[in-house]
Nucleic acid binder design. Structure first.
Lengths: 121, 121
DNA sequence: CCAAACTACTTAACATGTTATGCTTATGCG
DNA sequence: CGCATAAGCATAACATGTTAAGTAGTTTGG
């Protein structure tokens, strides 16, 4: 993750903050529980991350009027800009890693990690 | 790591504290820089962990009289006891994970992780 | 219909990850 | 020898991981 942190340091974002932004971008309006699931974060961590992202003006949070326990997280225009400005470098970094490892090994690693993650120990 | 944390919660040790204890046990008297290397920890984290382990009475720290910048970390009798009391369950947990994943996949995962770790991005 | 159980999220407290900085002791070199 | 530099740790500051509790809103069984 070192290169990722370096990439994001220019816009004052951490790995996790970036990951959450990307999840919101790809999913559209979404509630924290689903974000946590997709970003592999526990809710207490996500709570703090969403607070930071809101302070920075990258997301908005609204109460879900159907179920008032829930929130709806949305990207702001600023948030979309930040993603646009960094997405190419981010994807390039992933691709570079994939090439350095070899595509087959890269996929094999992901599969094995998913398998380990799915295990009941 | 969930099961590991559960295993160690009985003796009030965290994963990393346990890992450091194990490194010291296997290496014998050793300095913090080498511990950090073997346990995959950064020195600031290790500093705090060693402080905790010393408070708990599981390790001793002495200045290296040859090079007074260095320390020598040693297991105490209490530290050895804690390891003896938990090592079997710890190894059993590793073995169980290995079996659940399948030995081949388990080894393949370790190899791929080592490969990724060795990569220069 | 209502109290108990549950869900979604927050807060708190402590441990660690990460980067930058500081301090002390060693080393290399002119 | 004497100083600049480097090595080995410690500290500080902030972000996250992890577990336990707390709060508000919802659902459900009697």
């Amino acid at each position: 993750m070192g290169p990722v942190r370096q990439l994001l340091s220019g816009v004052d974002l951490t790995e996790q903050q970036w990951r959450v932004l990307r999840v919101v971008q790809e999913s559209g309006p979404i509630d924290p529980t689903q974000i946590a699931d997709q970003a592999c974060l526990l809710l207490p961590s996500l709570t703090r991350i969403l607070q930071k992202l809101e302070e920075k003006g990258f997301i908005d949070r609204a109460r879900d009027e159907t179920d008032r326990r829930r929130q709806v997280v949305t990207l702001t225009a600023t948030g979309m800009e930040v993603i646009e400005q960094n997405i190419d470098a981010s994807l390039a970094l992933i691709e570079r890693t994939r090439e350095k490892m070899g595509a087959e090994d890269y996929e094999a690693l992901l599969d094995l990690l998913r398998k380990l993650n799915g295990l009941e120990l």
